[in-house]
Write a protein that binds this DNA or RNA. Structure first.
Lengths: 225, 225
DNA sequence: AAGACTGTGTAAAGTTTCGGTAAATTGTAT
DNA sequence: ATACAATTTACCGAAACTTTACACAGTCTT
């Protein structure tokens, strides 16, 4: 399921233009021509980012920006008609993430959307410290795995899966839970996928002292013995 | 024990960003989003330097700066949203040591922090000392790179990229992270840009013993073997 | 012990990512 | 303004990885 970008502008023409380019990049687009309605949609559609015109009927962009900011740090790109306005907005420091003057280049808009999402999507990596479990060593920031000092090559999903299990030894995770965490909450595929990666892990980590155990009918856990 | 830099800004996003790069240079980071709290922390945490946003809730940056100055000559770098403001501040002569306009380049911020600390004569943290890794030599001050004593011509981005990787050998960096550090956090472009520069590096540094490795689906790292 | 259900292993199909080349764009110096 | 250098974008084919499919093996229930 693609991420949604909410575009708020009183000119339908602008919305259509933006929609064309944004959808072309694989995002979904929601839109509104009215300030109040926009606030509603922010709550309902849970957009990943809002493109917000300064001048709006209902409630102006500044006010919306301010209100959103009291609630969340949802990324906002402000559109203004005159470049003077940018100084004004920036001066107010109400926490928009970027600014663009009309007429804007749609490609530029898309580039900035991507840049901001790239930044804000950075997964909070809580534990970056190396981790030892029996003869297993995991260094998250190097994405390095060793068993008895011997480096084992793991692929991305294998590593993420092992890390998840190893950070919580003994804890049972359902396949659904593992999909949520390792694959992302919007993963649409089969839970069986997890099984395959567990199989790969077991195969590559034969010599590992903590073992990936199956909890029948429930999921998997890592046991340290 | 590392020196502490106190970062004061009302936007948590900015703080997080600054923290990432400053800590990466071996400093500790304290932070505050509120003016009054900041004054407290200056007393408690005894920072070596303060990065201070002009606009703040609680008490604005100018006032804090003024108060600190009555007590000590703790180095201060002021952040402002508009370049106009700098003239204003400088006019007030309240003795900040440097100024930076938002959006700022995090590398630039770090560079100025180091410059000021160096100037203020305490033995500053990890200096821009030459760096050796296998048969690779990097001298950041001269922006000089040698492999087996043979100088290699690198372009600006190539050098910055290599330096980032070489300062943290073994650590995996996502393209996003590299864009943030080398290109600046408001770079609005493709992540693939990184790939091209990595390709150039590999081509120019065939003989280098540490190698730039691809971590599939994640990013790049420099491995020393 | 049979039947129903859950998990494993293997391989093929599908998808994404990456590296290289070249073209387009931007920046810099003449 | 023009030429040259550096950076960024575009695109394709290859490689790496992921997911699906399916037959078989194991486990639990009655």
């Amino acid at each position: 399921m693609p991420e949604t970008i909410l575009v708020v502008d009183d000119e339908q023409r602008i919305i259509d233009l933006a929609r064309m380019y944004i959808e072309n990049e694989g995002f979904a687009v929601a839109s509104s021509t009215d300030g109040r309605e926009a606030l509603q949609k922010i709550l309902n559609d849970k957009p990943a980012l809002v493109v917000l015109d300064l001048m709006l009927p209902g409630m102006d962009g500044l006010e919306i920006c301010r209100r959103v900011r009291t609630q969340s740090d949802l990324p906002i790109i402000m559109l203004t008609a005159r470049s003077d306005d940018i100084d004004k907005i920036v001066g107010l420091e109400l926490g928009a993430d970027d600014y663009l003057t009309k007429p804007f280049n749609p490609r530029e808009l898309v580039a900035r959307i991507k840049a901001i999402l790239r930044r804000s999507e950075r997964k909070a990596a809580p534990e970056a410290k190396p981790l030892t479990l029996g003869n297993l060593l995991i260094n998250p920031e190097q994405r390095l795995v060793q068993v008895d000092g011997v480096t084992v090559d793991l692929r991305m999903k294998e590593f993420d899966l092992l890390l998840m299990l190893a950070e919580n030894p003994g804890i049972v995770f359902s396949r659904e839970r593992l999909l949520d965490v390792v694959w992302g909450y919007n993963f649409a595929g089969e839970t069986r996928t997890v099984d395959v990666h567990v199989a790969h892990l077991r195969h590559k980590l034969r010599q590992m002292s903590p073992q990936v155990e199956t909890v029948w009918g429930v999921g998997y856990k890592l046991v340290v013995d």
